[in-house]
Amino acid sequence: MDLTQLEMFNAVAQTGSITLAAQKVHRVPSNLTTRIRQLEADLGVELFIRENQRLRLSPAGHSFLRYSQQILALVDEARMVVAGDEPQGLFALGSLESTAAVRIPETLARYNQRYPKIQFDLATGPSGTMIDGVTEGTLSAAFVDGPVMHPGLEGIPVYREEMMIVTPHGHAPVKRASEVNGASIYAFRANCSYRRHFESWFHADRASPGRIHEMESYHG
């Protein structure tokens, strides 16, 4: 079964005639007859009741016509989406949760006003998960912590962030990792870029954290 067969089937269903349908799709009648027979053989049913020089839809043909029309309509819609001058369709965007909550809502709102036919599908998670989504094709792009070192991806700086250590009230100021060597810490999951920066900070000062309590998000 292919799109040409569906177009031929629709034309015959509309005109009730192989000759008229052939004119409609710019084919010779014998070609239409052969392709319709092939379609019926593929489906295992007769789509038309043949009466002298006229063809009318069989019960199975009536059922198949609805699906055939839907398929061809979706194909036309897909062609318009990819060929149109105005961007449209689904845009799967990934983001760090903190970025999605604080940084990008205003940007996405302006983008949506400019391109109302774009439908955003926003996914949030750690940088590692978002990068995997882009490389696997489930995400079109993602806001992640940089720099992006993946050889198959290109990163563009958008925001600059400063990391901070939050300590209990009354704790002495922390300037070096060695000052909290062995201390229990709260951090994001292992594939989070913030977590990797934090661990690198300890490693650079030849220190190491104690027990690491993992958080799913910055809400706790």
Rank of each mutant, 00 (worst) to 15 (best):
K24E: 10
V174K: 10
R110K: 11
R176P: 00
Q53W: 01
A78S: 14
G94H: 02
R195E: 11
F202G: 11
D145R: 09
N112D: 09
G89I: 07
L72D: 07
E162R: 14
L122G: 07
S30I: 06
G128R: 05
V82W: 03
I185P: 10
L47V: 05
V45M: 09
A204F: 03
F143M: 13
L153N: 10
M80D: 15
L55V: 07
E106H: 14
S200P: 01
Q69Y: 00
S95I: 03
L20R: 15
R110N: 06
I71C: 05
I104Y: 04
R54I: 01
A204W: 00
N52Y: 04
V82D: 12
R196D: 05
G210R: 02
S95C: 07
H62A: 11
S127L: 01
G210E: 05
Q113A: 12
T124M: 09
D42R: 12
R37C: 01
K24H: 06
G220Y: 01
D145C: 08
V28A: 12
T99Q: 06
Y159R: 05
Y186C: 13
L6A: 09
V158S: 09
L96K: 07
H26N: 13
M163D: 09
H62L: 11
A204I: 04
I118D: 05
G84M: 05
P105S: 02
L20C: 02
F202L: 10
P29Y: 00
I185K: 12
Y194W: 02
A83E: 15
R160H: 10
R56G: 00
A41L: 12
F9W: 05
H197E: 12
A109P: 00
T138E: 03
A101W: 02
T129G: 07
Y194F: 08
P147D: 04
Y218G: 06
F48P: 12
L74P: 01
V12G: 07
M8T: 06
P168R: 11
F198L: 15
G155L: 02
D145P: 01
V12Q: 10
Q14W: 01
Q70E: 14
T138P: 03
L96H: 14
G125H: 04
G137C: 04
E40A: 04
V25I: 10
R114V: 04
L57I: 08
L108V: 06
G155P: 08
I104N: 10
E46S: 15
F188W: 11
R35K: 14
F143P: 07
R211H: 11
V174C: 08
A73F: 00
L32P: 09
N191M: 05
F91A: 13
H150K: 11
P157D: 07
A22E: 08
T4A: 13
A83Q: 15
I156E: 14
R56T: 08
G89K: 10
P173D: 08
H219L: 08
A11I: 05
T34Y: 09
M1H: 11
P87R: 11
